[in-house]
Nucleic acid binder design. Structure first.
Length: 822
RNA sequence: GCCCGAGUGGUGAAAUCGGUAGACACAACAGAUUUAAAAUCUGUCGACCAUUGGUCAUGCCGGUUCAAUUCCGGCCUCGGGCACCA
């Protein structure tokens, strides 16, 4: 074997071997248990960053570990290739988005190979290719036929100078990022998919995912936001044009007697109609439109409103209440109107204080509650007992809900309703670099789906980007189409890129299938994904859309299971300067330099060692060198061992104590690392445990005799196999140097020898009044009374028992004795 | 603003089911080796006091417990998401 560890040589050799032997290519094989391990595919932004390295190292470690468990492991890779950055780069570099994208995927593919990730490259997907998006278009037309797709007016950010729609990211402090103009809200017709039709199933099936982080399930539950409330109708005192009233939804019907005003969205039809004859209101509505549509902006902006002067009639008392138009009420949510109860809603409270509207208390803290109410300072938002509510006085929330719902239902003015916060998925984008929405617009209005034989609707790749208008919107020729002799026009909006990432995991099972969206046999063999790994930033949107799409595909008969991802690991963010690394922030760290300096194994080792995978980590280069030194020590240890001669056959029963200790450490490490890789998925502690083993090897090994060499051989071989998923290149070289014909990837995971774990004594800690005052070595499984006695005999313990009486002794076998005394 | 997390030595972290706080590393310092440096090896390494040992210490305040980094309540700071960044 080479005396020196030269990563470049070691890694080239291993990678060539995997390439030549197609080590990671898999096919359906019913004789083996399958394991589908998937990493969230990258957006091809140019170069890999440390977040990618972390993500793909995790899946590669799991892939190789499962492979060594004897499973048939699928680990695919591809490119989430449509998206906004390609358009920006194309403008900047005067090229076409397609060209830029393909050159990035070529470069990043090379980088992924350099890192030694075991992907089945025969399944590589690129979402901007027609072979992929054709099926997405086809599926959309199926959803359209099923009535799960519709078109409606919806609000976008509008840059009045550039005359273009802006993404939320392109709105900075309320202004367009290029023009600097104040952004306006604009309503345009857009396509939606009815995710709300699946809200109930999406929330319920979270309970079928025991191997998802609780945190992610909670976020999704809150996002879907199921609530029980009341739809209510308010009549207008005097009709406004054709409108005699409007609907609102509330989850707090118990507060209805405290309603002192109602608010309409600026885009509400009643508000619009009133504005026609009210110039002040026209101005106010215009002012409301100057702001971004992002929810965070809506929630943090200053609340403003204007009294319209008209009155609505309280649905129970018939009393008139004033009707306001408010900037925080959104037309896209619910009915675009809300009832306001200043005494019991903090936002309404602040609004009422600002505009001098009455604050009427109708809820008092329950007798049993410690809550305090002080309406001079803040709203009381807890549930309690009704007061000042006439016949409902004294009722608690549930009783009041039922009574008030009953009254309103009888009067035909209200109805109990389950509502969801979740809104239908708007999939239209007014951008070029996306999959064209497969619809024909008819000259007389209306639209029809592009029939299957006309799919895909191809996106031209050879275009010039001017930065303002989408090339397909500008291209009148492209828009032209005919259907059965009729002249029609192609839709020029493209799909949200979440569409592509919502089903790629399924397409990996049959990436080259031409007969349909999915090959059912392949999909049924591989799905669900056994392990999905990706950034926590995708906890809601991507993971919810993918779950939704899976259910849509199931109902189309394309897949069989109910959920796409059996187990989920959300890696923490790799932060730089305390914030998310991203191209737009320009704070990415390029792993390439580190690979050149130390090799891929060191980069992989360090990225796994630095922190547990779910924790966010602040990137720093220091520490990488330490990982490299560990690999060098490992190399030297194996080299020294080989030079020391051939070991004898291990006689485990007749070893000196030091050698027994080393064997025990070896097998304890197998147990620890197996648990860390399989159940816990804490790769940092697995590495630490292996480092401990190597430290013990250097302390305890005895190369002077054949038995000592045999024990050392066992320890070193174990360490190599345990590390093989993390540092596959060096492991492969060292394994070969030790005379093995197979590569570690194709070896079985090390077997635990329970008999090596036995020990005769164990350290027991002694506490007096909760503080550690001594330790003792006791025979394993010593009875409680013996441990108590031994503990009380200890000199230091006695010192702390002087002058006090022992009240109680708690013994935790093989662990601790706790003495309570005073 | 709302939802979800996180906070432990100079640094990254460990403590898995409430039981020894700081495993394993990085950095630093000291020593060995070297003409010298690098590399390597050995040792020290939370703070304060001290003599073996003790006191304090896991963001802050409080609670439960024989025992709390771990459970509960309230706060602070930082990070992620908020539907057109992916």
């Amino acid at each position: 074997m080479q005396e020196q560890y030269i990563p470049a040589d070691v890694e080239a050799e291993a990678q060539q071997y995997w390439d030549a032997n197609q080590s990671f290519k898999v096919v359906e094989d019913r004789s083996k248990e399958k394991f589908y391990c998937l990493a969230m595919f990258p957006y091809p932004s140019g170069k890999l960053h440390m977040g990618h390295v972390r993500n793909y190292t995790i899946t590669d470690v799991i892939t190789r570990y499962q492979r060594m468990q004897g499973k048939n492991v699928l680990h695919p890779m591809g490119w989430d290739a449509f998206g906004l950055p390609a358009e920006n780069a194309a403008i900047k570099h005067n090229t076409a988005p397609a060209k830029w994208t393909y050159s990035n995927t070529d470069h990043m593919r090379t980088q992924l190979k350099q890192l030694g990730f075991g992907f089945d490259w025969s399944r590589e997907l690129t979402t901007c290719k027609p072979e992929y998006y054709k099926w997405e278009q086809w599926f959309f037309t199926r959803l359209f036929e099923k009535g799960l797709v519709y078109k409606k007016m919806s609000t976008v950010n509008w840059d009045p100078v550039d005359q273009t729609v802006l993404a939320n990211e392109q709105v900075i402090d309320g202004r367009g990022w290029r023009s600097g103009a104040l952004v306006e809200r604009k309503e345009i017709p857009q396509w939606f998919i009815k995710i709300t039709a699946y809200a109930e199933e999406l929330i319920n099936d979270l309970d079928k995912l025991p191997n998802w982080p609780e945190q992610v399930k909670t976020m999704q539950r809150n996002w879907i936001g199921k609530s029980r409330g009341l739809d209510m109708h308010f009549d207008l005192a005097v009709p406004v044009g054709e409108f005699t009233g409007f609907d609102i939804y509330t989850t707090r019907p118990d507060t209805i007697m405290g309603v002192t005003y109602v608010s309409l969205a600026a885009e509400h039809p009643i508000a619009k109609l009133l504005a026609e004859t009210n110039p002040k209101l026209t101005q106010f509505i215009a002012d409301c439109k100057v702001q971004s549509v992002a929810e965070a902006d809506m929630a943090t902006m200053e609340k403003a409103g204007m009294d319209t002067g008209i009155k609505a009639l309280h649905p129970i008392t018939g009393e008139p209440v004033s009707v306001w138009v408010a900037n925080y009420v959104l037309m896209d949510y619910g009915s675009g109107a809300v009832m306001a109860v200043p005494a019991h809603d903090q936002r309404d409270y602040e609004f009422a204080k600002r505009y001098g509207i009455a604050i009427a208390q109708v809820i008092a803290p329950a007798a049993s509650s410690a809550e305090k109410i002080d309406l001079a300072k803040a709203a009381f938002i807890e549930k309690g007992v009704l007061v000042n509510s006439g016949e409902y006085d004294g009722l608690d929330f549930n009783a009041a809900f039922d009574a008030i719902a009953g009254t309103l239902e009888m009067a035909d003015k209200g109805q109990v309703k389950t509502n969801y916060r979740l809104r239908d998925w708007g999939v239209s984008r007014q951008r070029y670099w996306g999959a064209p929405i497969p619809m024909y617009n008819l000259p007389e209005g209306g639209e029809i789906a592009v029939p299957a034989h006309k799919l895909p609707v191809l996106l031209p790749e050879d275009v010039v980007m001017n930065g303002v208008q989408s090339p397909i919107k500008a291209d009148l020729e492209w828009r032209k189409a005919e259907l059965n002799g009729r002249v029609v026009e192609k839709e020029t909006d493209t799909f949200d890129t979440f569409m592509e990432s919502s089903w790629y995991y399924a397409r990996y099972t049959c990436p080259n299938f031409e007969g349909g969206m999915l090959d059912k046999a392949a999909a049924d063999y591989w799905l669900p994904v056994d392990q999905y790994v990706g950034g926590i930033e995708h906890a809601i949107l991507h993971l919810l859309y993918a779950r939704f799409f899976h259910k849509l595909m199931r109902d189309e008969g394309l897949v069989t299971c109910d959920e796409p991802f059996e187990r989920l690991l959300c890696q923490g963010m790799v932060l730089k300067d305390g914030t998310k690394m991203s191209k737009s922030k320009g704070n990415t760290v390029d792993p390439e330099e580190l690979i050149n300096q130390y090799g891929a194994d060191t980069v992989r080792l360090f990225s796994m060692f630095a922190a547990p995978p779910e924790q966010s980590m602040e990137w720093s280069d220091s520490g990488v060198a330490g990982g490299h030194r560990f690999l060098q020590r490992l190399w030297r240890a194996v080299e020294g061992h080989i030079n020391a001669g051939k070991p004898g056959k291990l006689d485990a029963a007749n070893l000196p104590q030091a050698q027994k200790d080393l064997r025990r450490k070896t097998h304890e490490t197998i147990a620890k690392v197996s648990d860390d890789f399989g159940r816990r998925q804490t790769f940092n502690t697995a590495i630490a445990a292996t480092m401990e083993l190597m430290n013990e090897v250097s302390k305890l090994s005895d190369r002077a005799n054949l038995q000592g060499l045999a024990v050392e051989r066992e320890a070193l071989e174990t360490a190599i196999l345990l590390l093989a998923p993390i540092v596959p290149h060096i492991s492969q070289s060292l394994w070969k140097a030790l005379g093995h014909k197979q590569i570690p990837l194709n070896e079985s995971w090390p077997k635990l020898d329970e008999s090596a774990l036995t020990r005769s004594t164990i350290e027991v800690v002694i506490q007096v009044n909760g503080k550690m005052r001594g330790k003792l070595d006791a025979a394993i499984d010593s009875p409680k009374d013996i441990l108590e006695q031994l503990a009380l005999e200890q000199e230091n313990v006695q010192k702390f028992l002087e002058g006090v009486t022992v009240r109680k002794i708690i013994v935790v076998p093989n662990k601790l004795v706790s003495i309570v005394a005073n």
